[in-house]
Amino acid sequence: MVGYVTISDMSFAVEQEGFSGPLALLLELIGEQKLEITKVSLAKVADEFLKYIDEHDVPSDELADFLLVASRLIYLKSRELMPYLKIDEEDAAAAKLEDQLRLYQEFVAAAAKLEERYLVHAMYRRPFVRQRSIPAGFVPAKNVSTASLLEAFRVVLKRLEPFFALQETSMERTKSVEERMDELKTAIASRANLRFRDVITSAGSKVEIVVSFLALLELLRRKHITATQEHHEADIVLQHVDPESV
């Protein structure tokens, strides 16, 4: 448990300085065990990484970044345990974590060299101040025109495009879970029972299968439906619960 003690020591320093992000934590964990940066060593420190997130208040604006790294570590670890498990997209992302960490390490080394130089041989300039009082009043810059304002606004809109796109997709997804719930509820209510298999086959895409499954779980939780299975590998039968009979 030596490693654990050092991490909590480090967290004290980190709290004083502000977080350095998930990659800094990973480098620290791997460095403590005197390991090289490889997929194997990354998988080894996965537990300690998760433990750290669990026990420390990671700032909310950095939490997503920590969780992204955590998910890749968990994937690497699960690959160690189940080598036959392989998800192509995940595999590529996890492999890149190794490269990313090496790149980060290079810049950490460069930062140390930069720090040695900082304010050691500073060069001074004449103070760039010129006292010139500007008369109070409306003094628009020469390049302000209706055309330049329009252009500036267009640039702002253009830059916001990715955010608009992002919002639309996430809203669509929430809506479709709700929609699917209503659909399934009506479908189950309109007939005596419905097989789970029918729900899955009626879904168009992989995403829709997931959405249907989530919708079913939610309906079960709200006790709008019941699910029964005769025996293992038998069809799961979904039944409508009559609210008056409850």
Partner: peptide
């Protein structure tokens, strides 16, 4: 003169 570690890294 104080630069935190994250600031120094970003500056680098």
């Amino acid at each position: 003169p104080e630069l935190t570690r994250p600031s120094l890294e970003t500056l680098t």
